[in-house]
Computed example of a mutant assay.
Amino acid sequence: MIGVTEIVLGSLIGAKPIAPRASALGSLAAAGMFATTLSFLATTPEAWQETRGEPKLSLAGQFLVKDVVLLGASLLTAADALQAAECR
Results as ranks from 00 to 15, higher is better:
Ser27Glu: 04
Glu86His: 09
Lys16Gly: 05
Gly53Phe: 06
Glu46Lys: 12
Ala22Glu: 14
Ala81His: 03
Thr37Met: 08
Glu54Tyr: 15
Ala31His: 02
Val65Trp: 09
Ala30Phe: 13
Gly14Lys: 13
Leu59Arg: 07
Leu12Ile: 01
Leu64Val: 11
Lys56Ser: 09
Gly72Asn: 05
Gly72Ala: 15
Ala24Pro: 00
Ser27Ala: 15
Leu76Lys: 11
Leu38Cys: 04
Leu70Ser: 08
Thr36Gln: 08
Gly10Val: 03
Gln62Pro: 00
Gln49Asp: 09
Gly10Arg: 14
Ile2Met: 05
Ala73Ile: 13
Val65Met: 11
Arg52Asn: 12
Ile13Met: 14
Leu57Ala: 10
Leu76Glu: 13
Gly3Thr: 11
Leu38Trp: 08
Gly26Pro: 02
Ala78His: 02
Thr43Lys: 03
Ser58Met: 02
Ile7Glu: 13
Thr5Gln: 14
Met1Asp: 08
Pro45Leu: 01
Ala81Ser: 15
Leu9Gly: 06
Leu64His: 02
Val65Phe: 08
Ile2Asn: 05
Ala42Ile: 06
Thr77Leu: 09
Thr77Lys: 00
Ala29Cys: 10
Pro20Phe: 11
Pro55Gln: 14
Ala78Gln: 01
Ala35Lys: 04
Arg21Asp: 12
Val4Gln: 12
Val69Leu: 11
Asp67Val: 02
Pro45Met: 00
Thr43Asp: 07
Glu46Ser: 14
Ala84Leu: 07
Pro45Ser: 08
Val65Pro: 01
Ala24Asp: 05
Arg21Glu: 14
Ser27Gly: 13
Ser74Gly: 05
Glu50Lys: 10
Ala73His: 11
Glu54Thr: 15
Ser27Arg: 00
Ser39Lys: 07
Leu38Ser: 04
Gly32Lys: 01
Lys66Ala: 05
Lys56Trp: 09
Gly72Ser: 09
Thr43Ser: 13
Leu59Gly: 07
Gly72Val: 08
